[in-house]
Structure formats: structure tokens, C-alpha cells
Simulated scan of single mutants.
Amino acid sequence: MDAELVREIAQPLSGDANDFGKLLELIGDARFVLLGEATHGSHEFYSERAAITRRLIAEKDFSILAIEADWPDSSRVHRYVRGATVDANADKALSGFRRFPTWMWRNTVVVEFVEWLRDFNKSIEPKRAPVGFYGMDLYSLHASIEAVLKYLDKVDPDSAKRARLRYSCFDHFSRNPQEYGYATTAGAIESCEDAVVEQLVELQQKAAEFLRRDGEVAAEELFFAEQNARLVKDSERYYRAMFRGRASSWNLRDRHMVETIENLVAHLDGGRQPKAIVWAHNSHLGDARATEMSHYGEMNVGQLIRERFGDEAVLIGFSTYHGTVTAATDWGAPAERKNVRPALRGSYEDLFHETGLSRFWIDLRGA
């Protein structure tokens, strides 16, 4: 592939409403559209991704948006876009995103999109499923524990007591789960694995009882509680795996993301299979088999979704030759605007830069 060929097949982007018409034609009847980003802090990636997402929702009936964020924080936004919250606006609904880097989801593009999504859900016909906003990451160990306990306190106080006893296994540590992971890996303490698995199993075993008693109206609350319990189980494994090597923890994390997407699809399947949009970094959503990740034994969401769903999945990445990014010098440090270095010689970004086209999209499958 050379710059001349890219110019011939590139689809220029002008910023108008028709920019992505041909992209939607390419997506066709796909049920999974994965929309990446090259950084967690560049406005253009977020803006274009939101524009594509609006059209997928409005024109192709996508009803699931799963993002690279924690389930409990995203659940608050989910309630807001469904009109089931006391939050006054999108900014307030997003205020639960406190984990670094906060600008990843608490930014102007996401605020505007969340307001649009709430308005969209208000305007749809009753027969159409409203769109949900969900987190698929697994960092929220303690927040998810609190969510499980809150649910059980409401529906089954005796089960809540047993859950507190099981989850008390983590009480010897601060709110930093990495301390737990290090201590278990070093052999200083026994892991909490059995306790968190037992809790998930009990919740699943009681699901039918809760539904019979509380009715289908309570099905979503139960699903959210189960998902939090699954997250606790996977998060516990993840923090232990952190100290065994990158590939082990990375694969656990991306498997959890895919399982979350599959759980959502199964939960919301009412005869007409729901369709899902995924927002995450390119490193999660590209196909790992086409990158050096596979050489290190790493897999990712893009690979797993493509393996399981084939042509029903479309993977879309974003990149740039240079620009700016909101980032921090150290983990937990204040946000700064930093320059993105020009792309490496011989990279795809370098090739695209040689075309002289400032903004475009290209179908690499046929290139």
C-alpha cells in the first residue's frame, strides 16, 4: 500500500452530517461495532466516535453502549439516560467517575453525548428498546462489593449478612486492591477467591426466587447485582494476576470485558437480538492477532469478539500523525495538554500523512 492508493480509496471527512454515510453502509447489519481511540484524551477521537454512535443508535437500532469504565460508575449514567435518577444533568450523573484519569469520561464530548442519549430515549416509540450505558471494566472491586451489599440489604437481609462475612476477607487492606494482590502473591495471606466465588454462586442460585417474589420489574436490579458480583470475582483474580505478569492480567481484563458484553446481549435479548457499540482504546478493540501483542501471549476484546461473531463485528480504530492530548506526567498527577509526537517513519500514520488528506476514513479490509 502506498500514499497514492490510499488517496484513491480514502473517504474524506468534511465535518458535515453525511460524513459517515458510507461507513454505515459498510457496517450493514453487523451486531457489534467497536469504536477505538488512539489516546484517552484527544477531543477529535471522542467527537467523531460520538457522531458515529449517534447514527448507529438512531438509524440502525443499536441499544447497548459498553465503555472502558467501571460498572458502578456507568450504572449511574445508565439510570440518568433512562430517566430513572435524581441527577439534574449529565455532568452530575458523570460525577461518579473519580478514578484517574477522570477526564477520560468526564469531558465535554461525553457530557453532550449523555444529554443527547437521554433526550433520544425520551423520544422513542414504546415498542423500541431504550439505549443503555454500561461499564465493562473490572477495577471497581470495593464499589461493586458495596453495590452487591446494597442490593441484598434491600431484597434479602439474611443473604446480605452472609455476603458481608465473605467480603470481609478484604477488610485487612486499604481501598487499594493492589495491596491485596501483592500480599496474596507474596504468600502473606490466603486469597479471597473462594469467598467471592461462593457469593456469586449464591446470588445466582437465589435469582429465580427473587424474580418469583419481586417480579420481572426487578429483573434489571438483579442483573446489575449479579454483574457486580461477577466483577468482584474477576477483579479479585485480576489484582492477584497483576504480580504474575502483564499478559496474565491483560487477558483477564479483556475476557471480562467480552463476557460483560455477552451478558448484556443475553440479558436484553427479547426475541430481537440487541446490537452493541463498544468504546475503548485501540489496544483493546483492534485484533491482537494482527499486532505484536500476540507474540507476548496477549489477546484482546477485538480478537475475541471477531472470533466469536465473525462478520457480525466491525472494528474501527482512530489515529493521527500528530496533535495534542490531555494526559499526566505521572499516575494521579494533574491533567496537562501535551503534544503528540509525529508518527514513526514507516507507520500507517506516516503513510496516511503522506497523502496530504487531513481527515478521512479507509476500509483496510479491502486495501
Rank of each mutant, 00 (worst) to 15 (best):
L5W: 03
R7M: 14
I9A: 13
A17V: 01
K22Y: 13
L24R: 09
L24C: 06
E25H: 05
L34M: 15
F45K: 05
A50Y: 07
T53W: 11
L56K: 08
K60P: 03
D61H: 02
L65P: 03
L65D: 05
L65A: 02
L65Y: 05
A66Y: 02
I67D: 05
D73Y: 02
S74I: 01
S75P: 01
V81W: 03
G83Q: 07
G83V: 00
A84S: 10
D91T: 08
K92R: 12
G96H: 04
F97K: 09
M104K: 13
V111S: 14
V111P: 01
V111T: 10
R118Q: 15
N121Q: 09
K122W: 04
P126V: 01
K127E: 15
R128Y: 11
A129T: 02
V131M: 12
G132W: 03
F133N: 08
F133G: 03
Y139S: 15
L141S: 10
S144Y: 04
E146A: 15
A147F: 09
D153T: 00
D153Y: 00
D156S: 06
D156E: 11
Y167C: 02
Y167M: 10
F170I: 04
F173M: 11
R175W: 12
E179R: 04
Y180P: 05
Y180D: 15
Y182H: 08
A183Y: 04
T185M: 07
I189C: 13
I189Y: 06
S191D: 14
V197C: 02
L200K: 09
V201C: 04
L203D: 01
A207T: 01
A208W: 00
E216M: 12
V217M: 13
A219S: 15
E220M: 08
E220N: 06
E221P: 00
F223V: 00
E226S: 01
F243A: 05
G245R: 10
A247W: 04
W250F: 15
V258P: 10
T260D: 09
I261F: 12
L264E: 14
V265Y: 04
L268W: 10
R272A: 15
P274T: 02
P274D: 14
K275Q: 13
I277H: 06
W279R: 09
L285P: 04
R289Q: 14
M293G: 06
S294H: 05
G297H: 02
M299Q: 08
V301I: 12
E307K: 05
R308W: 02
G310F: 06
D311G: 08
A313Q: 12
Y321V: 02
T324L: 11
A333N: 11
R337D: 08
L344Y: 08
Y348C: 03
Y348M: 12
L351K: 02
F352R: 01
H353E: 15
T355E: 05
T355C: 12
L364D: 11
